[in-house]
């Protein structure tokens, strides 16, 4: 699964030689096109999943722990 995904990602990246002109980038300024449109909501959910599941990380560094369970 891991390898397949990596291959897919790399294929994606190397496949994009055509450039996107500066004036074609208007969509990326929209809030809903940000990686995290709602940073507060995302941070809180990260905290919930971090304290209720075994996995954490991926999109941010670990930060401090808590006694939550």
């Amino acid at each position: 699964m891991k390898k397949i995904l990596l291959v897919v990602c790399l294929g994606f990246l190397s496949g994009c030689v055509s450039t996107v002109e500066p004036w074609e980038r208007g969509r990326f300024t929209k809030n809903e096109m940000q990686l995290e449109p709602d940073q507060m909501g995302a941070a809180f959910k990260r905290h919930v999943y971090f304290s209720k599941e075994a996995s954490s990380g991926g999109t941010s560094t670990a930060g401090g722990g808590c006694g939550c369970n």
Binding site: C9, F12, L13, C16, S18, V20, E24, R25, R27, F28, M33, L35, S56, G57, G58, T59, S60, T61, A62
Partner: peptide, 24 residues
Amino acid sequence: TSALISYSHILNKNTLLQVGAGYS
């Protein structure tokens, strides 16, 4: 301790992709 590296790229005028790797 933890560390995270990520790379994002605008693939075309509609698509943005980010890939990342982390270690803790």
